[in-house]
């Protein structure tokens, strides 16, 4: 059983018999009023979006889903293909269901696939992934424009802001929970 204190992005709960994923969450408190927990949830089967505001004291049932260790194999048109490490079964997911995780899916990446009635409905990537920078403008030494970051494209096609000293071909660590640059891989 979850309480409102457990609410956060990524939490999976059961609502009216369906599994829901919390995709946005914020704490609100209108001028000295009661604490409110604003959530945006996605039905993990139909994909429909639901806005709900909860108050302190409300509780939630966790979604009864099965998590399985898999690895990402390859992308085929608009589908992503994963394989169960234990029994070599393959599962397919469309791009929309994969969501932001597509930014981090490189061949053989270990992931957790979420199954609901033997259908893959969500993918969890590791908190940190190493990706190679395939395009970024060089840093001009002595640049006084004062900019503290620049855009870079990594091998999955994802574009993010990195510190100016990062060069093309470097491996960087990305925090997949925020989508932000974390550090460079040394050596």
């Amino acid at each position: 059983m979850y309480t409102v204190a457990d609410l956060k992005k990524g939490l999976k709960i059961t609502l009216d018999g369906d599994p829901y994923l919390v995709i946005a969450f914020d704490f609100a408190k209108p001028g000295k009023g009661q604490a409110l927990y604003r959530t945006k949830m996605r039905n993990m089967i139909t994909g429909s979006i639901l806005d709900r505001t909860y108050r302190s004291g409300e509780t939630f049932e966790p979604a009864s889903l099965e998590d399985r260790k898999m690895q990402f194999l390859y992308k085929e048109e608009d589908h992503f293909v994963f394989m169960d490490n234990q029994n070599y079964e393959q599962y397919r997911m469309n791009e929309e269901t994969v969501g932001d995780a597509k930014n981090y899916l490189i061949d053989n990446l270990p992931v957790d696939l979420l199954l609901f009635s033997d259908k893959a409905i969500a993918v969890d990537v590791p908190n940190f992934v190493n990706l190679r920078v395939v395009q970024t403008d060089p840093w001009v030494k002595g640049d006084t424009s004062g900019s503290d970051s620049k855009p870079a494209t990594v091998e999955t096609g994802y574009v993010l802001r990195v510190p100016p000293f990062i060069e093309e071909g470097e491996l960087i660590v990305i925090d997949t929970r925020t989508g932000e640059y974390s550090t460079r891989v040394k050596g």
Partner: peptide, 11 residues
């Protein structure tokens, strides 16, 4: 419903 409406519909 004062706080909820304030948060969702007014603020």
């Amino acid at each position: 419903e004062f706080d909820r409406l304030m948060t969702e519909s007014i603020e």
